[in-house]
Design a protein around this nucleic acid. Structure first.
Lengths: 211, 211
DNA sequence: AATTTCACCGATAGTACTATCGGTGAAATT
DNA sequence: AATTTCACCGATAGTACTATCGGTGAAATT
């Protein structure tokens, strides 16, 4: 039992992190309606009024939660993934391109569930962020698809590639949800199914670009 | 301008419907946080206190909204759809099997968006209903898939068929969202992509059952 | 015609939460 | 050692909403 001699700044930073952690848990377990300054503060071990020492208001807390959690997750996922989608001929790499985001979602269940839930909730201050993240995610996937042979010259072609990216995202998310709910305990089984569906979209590749 | 002579019962039923309509709109536009007895009542043209003449509380309103709207939609969709999935060899029928639920979602945008949003919101009184509906939906699809040749003898096979059903649902919902947001104006284009992905899952059919 | 029913009203008590304010004591600075 | 800073506290005013209650007048029943 060593007594840590915390400086005032360190102590403040610690309670700030406690508040963010508590907010993440409450948001995940009880939804946005359950997130109050009273609950977060109590969970972090400070008085309700002290909440405002760390955040201007609840929206400020949510913003911080997003920028210090959600944003990083998104970028890390896509950085790792785009490395492996570039060679769709290689079976293992192709599989990795789906495994990486799937595992990333499952490794951060709270953030994943919250950002999913918030995305289409017009009353949520996080909605805008989550939708922007979704768009970025889709756009990155579109780039990858174009790099792997899809054409997006006409409006219609562009839409089609976006739809494919959208569908790939939907498949991955749905399998992640099933896994987190305990219905699909084996991620490799889920990957098998995603890959099978993806064989289908490959049929939309222009013939001359197929490997 | 004919003055309709409404009986007391008819008048009551009319305000009840006004309340339900208003609730649906507010729920869709502002989310659950925006749905208050004050707003619903005002939108329906009655005093806040008169809300309780029609519903015990807000949860009661939500329950009614679900049972008199959501439930019917789900059943109608699946009834229409299962007629056409039974003959996956017939291209037009196969396509219909996806078009029917897709169109059904797009025809009831508020209900569709609300039930989607509410499904994973632990704070929502509708969450339970929406999740049950999702399960029913998936189970019905699983039955259809088994009827069309998939096997579900072992635990693993059963899981796989459930995953496929889950994925089909995810694809359809995602395309419906894109259409309702205006990104995919042409539903037939979206159907093309869903069908392409589905060619992939057909590869998971046991060889001896393929048409 | 007399009586009863009841959808609706305004007023209001109660609840939950937000956000501010002055005060305190220990850490940090001088 | 004296002074300043500031994370945290309890108290509290303000806001938004829920749900009840007694009253009213027109419809429904007798």
């Amino acid at each position: 039992m060593t007594t840590a001699p915390l400086s005032r700044n360190e102590a403040k930073e610690l309670t700030r992190r406690r508040l963010l952690r508590a907010a993440l848990r409450i948001l995940d377990e009880e939804g946005e309606a359950g997130l109050t300054t009273v609950k977060v503060s109590r969970a972090a071990g400070i008085a309700q009024s002290s909440f405002y020492v760390h955040f201007r208001d609840k929206q400020d807390l949510l913003k911080s939660l997003w920028h210090e959690g959600g944003g990083r997750l998104l970028r890390a996922t896509h950085q790792a993934r785009s490395l492996s989608i570039e060679a769709p001929t290689d079976r293992e790499r192709f599989r990795d391109a789906f495994r990486i985001p799937l595992e990333s979602m499952c490794r951060h269940p709270e953030l994943f569930r919250i950002s999913r839930r918030v995305r289409h909730d017009p009353g949520s201050p996080l909605a805008e962020f989550a939708r922007e993240a979704e768009k970025i995610s889709r756009d990155l996937l579109v780039e990858d698809l174009i790099a792997s042979g899809f054409t997006a010259g006409t409006e219609q072609e562009r839409r089609r590639v976006e739809m494919i990216a959208d569908c790939l995202g939907a498949l991955t998310e749905r399998m992640a949800i099933g896994h987190l709910e305990g219905r699909y305990p084996d991620l490799e089984e889920a990957l098998d199914v995603i890959i099978a569906f993806s064989r289908g979209y490959l049929s939309l590749l222009p013939r001359e670009n197929r490997a």
